[in-house]
Amino acid sequence: MNEKKPDNNLIVATSPHVHAPINIQKVMGEVLIALIPAVIASLYFFRLYAFKVLFIATASSVFFEYIWQKVNKQPIRINDLSAALTGILLALTLPPTIPWWMIIIGSMVSVILGKQVFGGLGHNPFNPALVGRAFLQVSWPQAMTTWVTPFDAVSTATPLAIKKLGLQEVIPSYFDLFLGNCSGSLGETSALALILGGIFLIKREHIFAITPFTYIITFIIGILAFGQDVLFHVFSGGLMLGAFFMATDPVTTPMSKQGKFIFGLGCGILTVLIRLKGGFPEGVCFSILIMNMTVPLIDKYTIPKPFGVKKG
């Protein structure tokens, strides 16, 4: 902006003339770093199954981003790592045994329908990875709810499904749920790994603690209100992945702290209602997508008062 070169070759531009050592690639890179514990946990518990899902989702997400930008004659920006991040996040929401072609379709939906059709990074109203997952869930519900046990990959149901449908299977201990030693999506299983990543993101100031905090607290209060097993519900399913990595996606969540609080509150209430009263055993994905829709409205009514304007 306003850049021009006068005769003496001095570069003229407006202040500031220095910039912090940060760019989009570094931000996305640090979110990927925060996902490393969850990725390692998924590889540990689901071995080659996890590797297959992670690899196909990431590679095809980047591929579809590249193709879209190429076809539309846009600058190629796969280096900013946002497509790779979408791919990894999508993979972490998928069951280990999902067929390879569904992963590719999911990635395509995530990147193209979830993000690029709206104008690319920064313009998408919905979390791209969750758009992909929701698409797969309603298109192939069978494959999206086929689960296996860790290590030996024996067919089983998720702890949430066991509980909801009253199946005759053993529910894992709280400790196994916390570590991720249970059936479920790749990255939804290990609460420990996700919390570690979340703390990293908060420390590095990429997300505000208020979103996951409000989400989880609201969720706990909701579960208690229905007289259900709190520890079981908190550590099973996709709550941690959703709270730390999906509900904090800056593009699709409110800007202000009050907005983030309302967003977390809404996600918590919806997740409880879907899990306990709805048709699905898990409600994190749809809760966040529904709350994504409310973001422009929340943003409109939560513009904070600036410095020097009386608060309250």
């Binding site: 531009a13 910039h19 940060i22 989009i24 690319g120 990074l121 313009h123 505000f208 800007m255 600036p306």
Partner: peptide
């Protein structure tokens, strides 16, 4: 000299964190 090429806002909110006048 800093790189002046810029991209679309992806609402990361870092400017909100640093604005001393508490603006958006």
């Amino acid at each position: 000299i800093i790189d002046r090429q810029y991209f679309d806002c992806f609402r990361c909110g870092k400017c909100i964190r640093v604005c001393p006048m508490e603006l958006f």
